[in-house]
């Protein structure tokens, strides 16, 4: 199946997030307390390399597997949604100590309490989908 490689990429991503301790509640707490460089180093170096990669995509120095130009989808631009949604997510990120990727990683680690966090996240996504047209 041509999609099976994405399972492998997911496995690698799950291992990377685990071993670099991104999935640790303490690392997120420490980041928001500005008491460690660790998370800033990870996000900063990922973004730094990401900027270079995406420039190489734009200049077509790197093309995709089939030889086509790689384009990055434009994010929906809505100042209120980006800022308020981001802030709401930030509150949850700092409290649970995990963003969506690590929720799934920690599920794999076998933490039962994460099932409740995931259920809450699905409930939140559901309510957002229902209310979206009524919100700014």
């Amino acid at each position: 199946m041509k999609n099976s490689k994405f399972l492998v990429f997911g496995i690698l991503f799950g291992i990377i997030l685990s071993k670099s301790e991104v999935v640790s509640w303490y690392r997120i707490y420490e980041m928001f307390k500005f008491q460690s460089f660790h998370m800033y180093g990870i996000i900063g170096s990922a973004v730094g390399l990401g900027i270079i990669l995406i420039q190489l995509f734009k200049k077509e120095i790197i093309k995709d597997f089939w030889g086509n130009k790689i384009t990055v989808k434009k994010k929906d631009s809505n100042f209120v949604r980006n800022l308020i949604g981001g802030t709401i997510f930030g509150l949850g990120w700092a409290l649970a100590g995990c963003c969506p990727g690590p929720i799934f990683v920690l599920l794999g680690h076998g933490y039962l309490a994460i099932v409740i966090v995931l259920f809450g996240a699905l409930l939140g996504a559901f309510v957002q989908g229902i209310l979206r047209n009524k919100l700014p």
Binding site: I43, A46, V47, G50, K75, D76, N78, R81, N82, L83, I84, G85, G86, T87, I88, F89, G90, L91, G92, W93, L95, A96, C98, C99, P100, G101, I103, A113, I116, V117, L118, F119, G120, A121, L122, L123, G124, A125, F126, V127, Q128, G129, R132, L135
Partner: peptide, 24 residues
């Protein structure tokens, strides 16, 4: 646990992405 999850789910979808989609 439930509330933190709710904030994560609602916030990321309202903002249009999370750490991977937006921040990275």
């Amino acid at each position: 646990l439930l509330g933190a999850g709710f904030l994560i789910g609602f916030g990321t979808r309202y903002a249009g992405g999370c750490t991977s989609g937006h921040a990275i």
